[in-house]
Simulated scan of single mutants.
Amino acid sequence: MIKSALAVLTSLLFIHAGLAPAAAQTVNNTAKKPVKKAVAKRAAQPVSRTVAKGSLNNREKLVRKVTVVKGKRQVSYQRVSAAPSVPVVPPVMTAGDMAGLNLTPDPLALRSNVALVIDQANSQVLFEKNSGVALPIASVTKLMTALVVVEARQNMEEVLTVTDDDVDREKHSSSRLRVGATLSRDDMLHIALMSSENRAASALGRNYPGGLPAFVAAMNAKARSLGMMDTRYVDSTGLSSQNVASARDLAKLVVAAYNYPIIRQYSTDPKYMVEPSGHALQYNSSNRLTSNKEWDIGLQKTGFINEAGHCLVMYTRIEGRPIVMVFLDSKGRLSHVGDAARMRKWLVDDQPSNLTRMKMVRADEG
Rank of each mutant, 00 (worst) to 15 (best):
Q242F: 06
S291D: 09
T268H: 10
A20M: 05
V234N: 03
T356I: 07
N58C: 07
K331T: 11
R232K: 00
A192K: 00
Y208H: 04
N220Q: 15
N287M: 10
Q282S: 06
G205Y: 02
R288S: 14
D339T: 02
S196H: 08
R79G: 09
L299Y: 08
A44N: 14
M325E: 12
R342W: 10
E365P: 03
A24D: 10
S286P: 12
Y315G: 02
V66L: 13
N207Q: 07
Q242G: 00
G54R: 11
L193C: 04
M273P: 00
T290S: 01
P46S: 11
A40Y: 03
A7Q: 10
N207L: 03
Q124I: 12
S330E: 01
T356Q: 12
A363I: 03
Q45A: 14
I305H: 06
S286M: 11
R185E: 11
L281Y: 10
T145A: 04
S48T: 11
N155C: 09
T163P: 13
S240A: 12
R342K: 15
A251I: 01
H190N: 00
L160R: 02
M360S: 05
S236T: 00
A115L: 07
Y260C: 02
D165N: 15
K345Q: 13
K359Y: 05
N29L: 04
R79Q: 13
G210H: 06
T182V: 11
L239Q: 13
G309M: 08
N354P: 04
R199K: 02
H336K: 09
E170D: 09
A7C: 03
A245L: 08
P87V: 11
T161F: 08
Y315L: 04
A115V: 04
R321V: 10
D119R: 09
D166I: 10
K301R: 10
A5N: 08
T26F: 08
V68S: 05
A24N: 08
P21C: 05
P34M: 05
K345Y: 06
C311L: 03
A201I: 02
T10D: 02
P276L: 03
G71N: 12
A138D: 06
P84F: 15
A134W: 01
G71H: 08
P91S: 07
G303S: 04
